[in-house]
């Protein structure tokens, strides 16, 4: 099933002399359960693409369909609600709410939606993340890797259509990086979770099923 479809997506910043074309007529689609890596040099437009898919920015032109829904037809509020139910976002740094502990950060999307937390689901997730003993800790008591794992937990708790990760290992050492990648792979295999991950590291990209390369705002090579 086609879980994501991107059609003629463009993003232009500024005007006239200051015009920057970040994305130039990008189109592609992703099937459910795929683990996709988007690679490209710094400034190639990969982050822009990810953010447009995630609905945290609006395109200049083009459309994005997630699970069949044209997300940019939604108004801001509906988009926010859609996002918390269907999209999981992981960033490079500053992911967590500093005054909530691990468990509270993870269940945040559910709380926002006023949904009951399925305790069994949560326990399994904490086990997967390796954070059972850290559930009461605040972010400033966690290492970088543990913080990132918590972010992933938050992204996964709602069983979203897509999990989007923007350089999730960029801030971590090699050991923690490996842990994160392994975690992503596991959730992809065990839960059939669709994952789109941005990285500039080819070694990490190789963990994915498919690599999309972007250069100067255009897709150049598909695997």
């Amino acid at each position: 099933m086609e879980i994501l479809k991107v059609e003629h997506l463009s993003k232009v910043y500024g005007k006239g002399e200051n015009k920057v074309v970040a994305l130039d007529d990008v189109s592609f689609s992703v099937e459910k359960g795929e683990f996709v890596a988007i690679v490209g040099a710094s400034g190639s437009g990969k982050s822009t693409l990810l953010h447009l898919i995630g609905g945290v920015d609006r395109p200049t032109e083009g459309e994005v369909f997630i699970a069949g829904k044209n997300i940019y037809q939604l108004n801001d509020d509906k988009l926010a609600i859609f996002r918390r139910r269907q999209i999981g976002l992981v960033y490079q740094f500053y992911n967590l709410i500093p005054i909530l502990n691990v468990e509270e950060n993870i269940t945040l999307p559910l709380e926002l939606d006023n949904r009951e937390v399925d305790r069994e689901n949560l326990e399994n997730l904490l086990k997967l993340l390796g954070l059972e003993n850290r559930r009461d800790h605040l972010p400033n008591e966690l290492s970088g890797g543990q913080q990132q794992r918590t972010s992933i937990g938050r992204a996964l708790i709602t069983n979203p259509s897509i999990l989007l990760a923007d350089e999730p290992t960029g801030n971590l050492d090699s050991k923690a990086s490996d842990e994160i990648v392994a975690l992503l792979k596991k959730s992809n295999k065990d839960y059939n979770q669709t994952i789109i991950m941005i990285t500039h590291n080819m070694e990490i990209a190789s963990a994915a099923d498919r690599i999309i390369r972007i250069e100067d705002g255009k897709i150049v090579k598909e695997d």
Binding site: A80, I81, Y94, L108
Partner: peptide, 14 residues
């Protein structure tokens, strides 16, 4: 940043 984070996770403006 904290506010932006909350919004990105899906908190509506209301």
């Amino acid at each position: 940043k904290e506010f932006a984070m909350l919004k990105s996770v899906g908190m509506t403006r209301k």
